[in-house]
Nucleic acid binder design. Structure first.
Lengths: 232, 232
DNA sequence: GCCTGTGAAGCTATTCACAGCT
DNA sequence: AGCTGTGAATAGCTTCACAGGC
């Protein structure tokens, strides 16, 4: 048994993500979702919103919305609902760091470049400030407005800029090595697009985005749906 | 209340995805994961595997692995574990359609192109056979080995080729319209990368890949981790 | 009437724990 | 001794249902 062995919930190091009394991982995800919807509403000039309206947009139940908002410590009026601006403020105060945060990306392939351009200029408080790649052809260039360096410069760069988050878009074969490098560089959260389960010490949060798994899930359920229809 | 209103579990149209007696959505995802790991093992010449070995690779518990395999109707020997090849066969028989399936992609932007090249030639039984875009500049070209057509040709193409799955990589503002188009074209499963909650009739399965939400989750938990450390 | 806030109930997913086997 | 298969227990998440308010 090494540091990476999965422990049962009860034995995991105290304060595991989403654990005891804290707000759950699922709820955090929905907060992000609600905020996006609320920002849309605000742009449309809407000032008040009912839980069932937000629920319809987010494709969850109204109870769920009320629970989530409750866990924020926010409250609404039975007559007018929740204040859109106030809610955005509360969610942001809860989700975001006090200052904008810098993020690095490792692996400047097709997917890496797509993600660079996807996030470039999007979130002002979550910015990809540098990309890293082991291919000498790619370093010391600017890609989608983002400077690209060699992976050997990552530890120094991360320390210098106090980076806490990294995005991994290297091939599966290199993913674990890059994750280890990120962890050694002081990173505390990794968003991984490589089709490999990364392991890291318990104090590093890892979010897996597994497109192959997602596509296979869709394939399975699409087939189920077709078959059910054929039965009727 | 329209066709898109979210119903409580108990009232949803019978045979909802993952419902009654069926194998759960989570389990399906893990099947895909296990298979990938098993294929790796097979390539390394490994013939037998214990639940705890697979569990360590997939980053889940051994109980979980045994349960999942049980739900496949597969069984192993207490002495040697599970047969790698046999397990791959059972998972594939369960997950895959009898024949290779064709998939379309809508939205040939940066992300669309990245996904085209990501999946091109990868899964032999899940192939993106065509891409669609409303930009006339992009149509009638080949991108990453995949022909690109105008979105107006989608219904005909889908009907002709019996397409059941679509990948959406258009901007959020166009996503719902494209989902509607896919549904009208007979699609039964959508993998959506746009930061918008798509709605579709209950017989269409939708998998959301929300990169912004994922990144914000990572940001939140990375910050939590740092703060916990600072407390010590 | 129609909303919020929330305790209680219900449901699902995961893990425990151990019989059974070799 | 060490594994699988699985009923039972537990944990976690979502929804119900209703009091309280305007």
């Amino acid at each position: 048994m090494n540091q990476y062995t999965l422990l049962p919930y009860s034995q995991r190091p105290e304060g595991e993500f989403g654990g005891n009394g804290m707000i759950s991982e699922r709820t955090i995800g929905r907060m992000s979702l609600y905020r996006r919807m609320l920002v849309d509403l605000e742009e449309q000039g809407v000032q008040k919103v009912f839980s069932h309206e937000l629920a319809a947009k987010a494709w969850v139940t109204a109870s769920q919305v009320r629970r989530d908002i409750m866990s924020l410590g926010c409250s609404g009026s039975p007559v007018h609902g929740y204040g859109v601006e106030e809610l955005i403020g509360s969610i942001s105060a809860f989700l975001d760091a006090p200052k904008p945060e810098a993020v690095v990306l490792v692996g400047v392939g097709n997917l890496g470049r797509a993600i660079l351009s996807h996030f470039s200029g999007r979130r002002p408080n979550l910015m990809i400030v540098a990309a890293f790649d082991s291919d000498p052809q790619k370093v010391n260039r600017t890609i989608s407005g983002c400077p690209c360096y060699g992976t050997d410069e990552l530890p120094r760069f991360a320390a210098q800029h106090g980076i806490r988050m990294g995005i991994v878009t290297v091939p599966a074969s290199a993913a674990q090595a890059m994750a280890d490098l990120l962890v050694r560089s002081g990173i505390r959260g990794i968003l991984n697009f490589a089709p490999a389960r990364l392991r890291a010490p318990a104090n590093v949060y890892i979010e897996q985005v597994d497109m192959t798994m997602s596509l296979e899930k869709v394939a399975y359920f699409a087939r189920q749906a077709s078959q059910r229809e054929a039965l009727r």
